[in-house]
Structures are given as structure tokens and as C-alpha cells.
Write a protein that binds this DNA or RNA. Structure first.
Lengths: 340, 340
DNA sequence: CGACCTAGGTATAGCGCTAAACCTATCATG
DNA sequence: CATGATAGGTTTAGCGCTATACCTAGGTCG
């Protein structure tokens, strides 16, 4: 039913391999006349190469996996930031004539299965914990170009792309201190596990120290990323820590929750308390007051992930195994001078 | 390098076909003893079937495409609603041991290419205009189970899944009328092209008519879905149509923009003007005032898309070609009684 | 007791493509 | 003029799997 190389070859009166070479644009020995004739027939008959046959016969599949954790229910994290990266990855890869396979991973062995089953040339790991990346072994993963996003692992098997989380925290906290704040709380999800949060935490501590502000463990709270948890935290801060005049959070959704919780407890933002978020999600610009936050270079992240992957596939092993992208502070309305 | 059926066969001392049958769980003639022995070796050696070899040899590829329009820049629409559907589709398909290939389509021929190249068993079309679905021809698309989301096409080639857009609009407008509103504006993107908006518009008109409210074309505005466009529209309404006491919009982002535009022009929501959105995006609950909106059954949509596709793949052609899912009104704080 | 089922397999022939080796006529060169 | 480059191909041998047809020993039945 579908037209194959053989059909084209028969119609053009040449061997199958000649057609193959032409179709693949190989600079092999084919006269211009033959090439044009074949190309015309290819177009006329609407020939489309079979990707499965190709990946079976060749080394490469031109297929890249997009692997995301899928614990039980959700697969794609609803994180808008994640989503944007997915779209950009797809675009970058499409430009290079690669395809993207989206796959939720609920058990570690599924990574290997996905990789091997489809002969993936590479894979982007999105949203995995550092420890999971660390556990990847060469024998389960061999020969595939792996790029982990936002991980801080020591695994040489994986290339890594992330934003300057340390620097982003520095930016945020410095901004708050510049406004006059001295009691600055930190709120983020479990930071022992994920490098991203740990880095931001370290950035926070460093700037505190730089400015001669003593570090208070009680001002650091583990709060999961959700509006509800953020709001609860905001209420808690208002009730228990009225001395705190600023909060740095590791996610916009969380920050918005904190703002709402604070407001619900009768404290105004930024009048009484300043709040800084992270990610510059769309939503940050639409809430009232508009959220001051740290923006990542999302397109850059996607592009860099693809570049790293392609370089490894091409065999040119660059010295850098990880790339860190810049961030910038978006000043909006939730951070202002402390009261008085 | 990778272990193949042949390797397993050799180790088990049986023919390759026996292994194939066992691996595929075929109820073919294999003794329990042989089956168990083979299964053990499969597990021990970590055999993973090659999907490309399979789809080359068999009719089916167990691969489903997720096709989204990719005009120039963006590929995945940032629409949070879209994203959630993607995640759920992936999960449903994974449960059935299918894989999802994400592909942006920038030109119509790419649909065919993607389908044929990867021998896709099916594809979900997300975000295409009705006209594009209509243009799909059997010779370009033959044999593939196509499911279009949110389309209202007459093309028998595509199965369709959508929400009850007409009913959603009825719900929203009836709610506003119930609150006492009589001058109700409608704002949405180009409705001639997309059935979703057209249906919502018709629902709006119908409820107006039912309640003896004359339809005023000037109250219907074409506004693209963005916060900026919404805000501009809000300002326009405040300036030019102070008589309008309620606005029904076809998207939350748009609605939030309208609220902000109205507020910027000094009109309060819902005090002066009520606003109803559509989709119940996460963001709708986080803005101030919280958005009253129409919620779709997103998980249902994804599940139904997969069900429709699987039924067609299984050959059981059901009478219904399209499924319409229910919606419900989420009453929050942007719709209240009109002034006085 | 020969025809025949049936359980439990095996053998063969591709699917559509690519890599690698091979072939042949033509031309230039020492 | 033999040698060899070179252009312009062709042939062969799979990649790993599935479908389909085939085989054989042991039991069943009329």
C-alpha cells in the first residue's frame, strides 16, 4: 500500500540503493540527472521513508525520549515552566529532524525499556530527582545521550542543563536586603533531595552572611509547591513570625499562596511583608499584587539541552558536562521596603 | 550488543518463534514448562523487544501521535488546559502499552509524513482548526485512527471529542441572567473559524433569546486569547459601553484580562460589571477576585479520546463518531448581581 | 488399523531500509 | 600502453521481528 524505496527504484529504473542515497542526500556518486529524476518521482508518488525500517537498519533512530516521572496519577507535572520547556524542546528537535517521544516513567527499569525498545538516540530527563539521575548505570543506558534538566548530579552519564539557581537566590535576597529587609524567611520544598532547592537555599544563606545577617533555621520552612500549602504558610508566618518582613520562595505558585495567606491573616503585601517568587510563570503577572520573581531563560534551557545532546551524539565530547543558564530578577509589586 | 529474540532462543534451546510467541503472550501451542523457562531467561537477560522491528514486521506499531499545530514559533500552545490533556493522554495510553509521539505540525503535509513515517496506529489532533480537520483526506491518512479534540468537523475520517461548548455557554449566561443581568457582552477569538467558539456563541444567543433579551451585535467582540487583549477589551467596555453589566468570555486568561482592564478603568468587578471565564484554569482560583468560570472534564476528555481510538483500532465501529462531555459552572467571585 | 486430530513446536519468507563491498566504463597519467 | 583514479552506479547481507505454512509424535475414532 505505502510506496517504498523499491517502488521508486523500479519506476526510476535504478537500484534501490541509488534511491536511498538520493533520498538521504548522501554526497555519493549519483549524477545530477538521475538525482533529479528520482527526486521528482519521490515527490510525485509521495514517498515517505519508514522510520522503523530506518532505525532497524541504521544505528540511529532520530528519536529522542522525553522522560518524565509518572508516579501513579499525574505524568506531566502541571508546572507551567515544565510545559514551556517541552514545547521548545519539540521545536528544536523538529528543526533537526528528530522526533520526540513522550513517556512517563513510573519505575526505574522503564527508563531502560523505553531507551532500548525504541532505540532512542537520546533522552531528556525532566523532573527527576538528583538521586535518580545518579543511579543510572552505563549498562542500563549505554550509548544514549542523556540530558537531565535541573539536576545537580555527579553522574558522568548524564549531561545537565539548569539555571543558575544559586545566583537566582542571590539576586532575590540581595534585592530584599537592598530594600532594607533583615528578617528574611525561606520557603521551598524538601531541599535535601533536590539540588535546585539546595542551591537556592545556599544562595540565600550566602547573601545573608555577606550582609552580616545571622542565619536562623526557624526562618527556613519546608513547604510543598501548591497554592494551599503556600497559603497555610502565609498564615503561619503572620501568626507566629510577625517579625519577618520578607519571604523568598522557590516557586511562583507557592509565593502566590503565601501572599494570599498573609492577606487572609490581615497582613498586606508588600506593605507589611515582601514576597519574592521564582520562575516568572505567566500567572505571576496576573495576580494582585503582581509578583516579583526570578525569571529563568526557558528557551535557552531547551536550546542548550538539544545542543548538548547533539554534540554528544556527534561524538564531539566537550569538556563541559553541564551548562548553567543565567537568570534575572523581575521586579513587580510584591517586594518593597519593610514597614517604617 | 542488545539481547534479541535469537539470543533467548539459543539459550532456551527452542526456536525463535517459540520465544516470540511466549513474549507476546500468544495462546499458541507452547507447554507451560517451556513458557516458564523462556520467561525466566527473558527476565534474566533483560530482554526488551525492539519496537522498530516489531512495527516493521507487524501491522501495528503501538505508537500514537500527538499532533499539535506549530506555526513558526510555538509548538505546544501554552494553554494550561491543553497541557493537562497531554499528560492524561500519555497516562491512558501508557496503561494500554502504547507510546506517544509528540509532533508539531507546521504544514499540512507533515501530518501525513508523521503518520506514515512512523506507522502510527493513531493520532490525536490537538488545537487544529475545524477546517484543517475537514481537509484531511483518506488517501493521505488511510487506516489511522484519528481523534480530533475540540473540533466540530464533518469529516468522517476523524473521531471527535469535545466538551459541551453550547451547554457551557448556556450555563454561564443563564447564571448571569439569573443574577439580574440584561446587557451581557460576549468576547472570544475568531468564531467563524472555530466551532468551539461558535458553539459557545450560539449558546449565548439562545439563552438571550429564551429570556427575551434582544441580541446586539455590538456586544459581541472578537478578542484574541491573551491577558493584554483582554485588558484592552475591558478598558474599551468601560469607556464605550458603560451600559454593559456582564461579560461572558471564552477563556480564563481573557476573562482575567477583562477584569484587570475594567479595574484599570475604574470599574469594579463584580460590583459594576460581572465577568465569567471558561476552562477553570488553575490561575482562575488565584486571581483577585476569584474567577467564576465554566469547567471542562479534562480527564474525561483524555480518557474518551483514548477509548474512541482504541475502539476504532479494534475495528468495533461504534455509531457515535463524536463524544461530547459535560461541563459545569464554577461559581466564584467575579459574577454578582448588577449595580442597583 | 489407517485416517485424523491435536499439542507442541520449527522453517521460511519477508517488513523497508542501510552499510559495506563490489563492479564497470571512462578518462587521465607516468 | 598498462595503471589507476574516479564517477556512477549495483549487489549482498543483514537489522529484529512477525505471519504463515509446515512438521512430527502421540493419541482417538470409526
Amino acid at each position: 500500500m505505502a510506496v517504498t524505496l523499491k517502488d521508486i527504484a523500479a519506476e526510476a529504473g535504478v537500484s534501490l540503493m541509488t534511491v536511498s542515497n538520493v533520498v538521504n542526500g548522501k554526497q555519493a556518486r549519483v549524477s545530477a540527472a538521475t538525482r533529479d529524476r528520482i527526486l521528482r518521482i519521490v515527490k510525485d508518488r509521495g514517498y515517505v521513508p519508514s522510520a522503523s525500517a530506518r532505525s532497524l537498519a541504521a544505528k540511529s533512530s532520530r528519536l529522542v525520549g522525553l522522560l518524565v516521572p509518572a508516579e501513579g496519577e499525574t505524568s506531566l507535572t502541571i508546572d507551567p515552566h515544565t510545559v514551556e520547556v517541552v514545547g521548545m524542546l519539540e521545536r528544536e528537535l523538529r528543526r533537526l529532524d528528530y522526533h520526540l517521544m513522550l513517556r512517563g516513567i513510573s519505575h526505574r527499569t522503564e527508563i531502560t525499556e523505553a531507551l532500548r525498545s525504541w532505540h532512542l538516540d537520546g533522552a531528556v530527563l525532566l523532573g527527576f530527582q538528583d538521586a535518580e539521575i545518579d543511579r543510572l548505570k552505563a549498562d542500563t543506558v549505554g550509548g544514549v545521550a542523556l540530558v537531565a534538566m535541573d539536576s545537580y548530579s555527579a553522574n558522568p552519564l548524564a549531561l545537565e542543563v539548569r539555571s543558575d539557581d544559586f545566583g537566582g537566590a542571590e539576586l532575590a535576597v540581595r534585592h530584599l536586603i537592598g530594600l532594607g529587609h533583615r528578617r528574611i524567611a525561606f520557603a521551598g520544598p524538601g531541599f535535601s533531595e533536590t539540588g535546585v532547592v539546595r542551591e537556592r537555599f545556599e544562595g540565600y544563606r550566602k547573601v545573608l552572611a555577606e550582609n552580616g545577617i545571622g542565619f536562623e533555621p526557624e526562618l527556613v520552612s519546608r513547604v510543598e509547591i501548591s497554592h494551599a500549602e503556600g497559603a497555610a504558610h502565609g498564615r503561619w508566618l503572620a501568626a507566629e513570625r510577625p517579625d519577618v518582613t520578607a519571604v523568598f520562595t522557590t516557586a511562583d505558585l507557592l509565593a502566590i499562596g503565601v501572599v494570599d495567606g498573609l492577606a487572609a491573616a490581615g497582613r498586606s503585601v508588600p506593605g507589611d511583608v515582601s514576597v519574592v517568587g521564582y520562575d516568572n510563570a505567566d500567572i505571576a503577572a496576573y495576580v494582585t499584587p503582581k509578583l516579583t520573581t526570578v525569571a529563568q531563560d526557558l528557551p535557552g534551557k531547551a536550546a542548550e539541552a538539544v545542543r548538548l545532546m547533539m554534540d554528544r551524539l556527534a561524538g564531539k565530547d566537550r569538556p563541559e558536562q553541564a551548562t548553567t543558564l543565567g537568570v534575572r530578577l523581575i521586579e513587580r509589586d510584591t517586594a518593597g521596603p519593610p514597614p517604617q
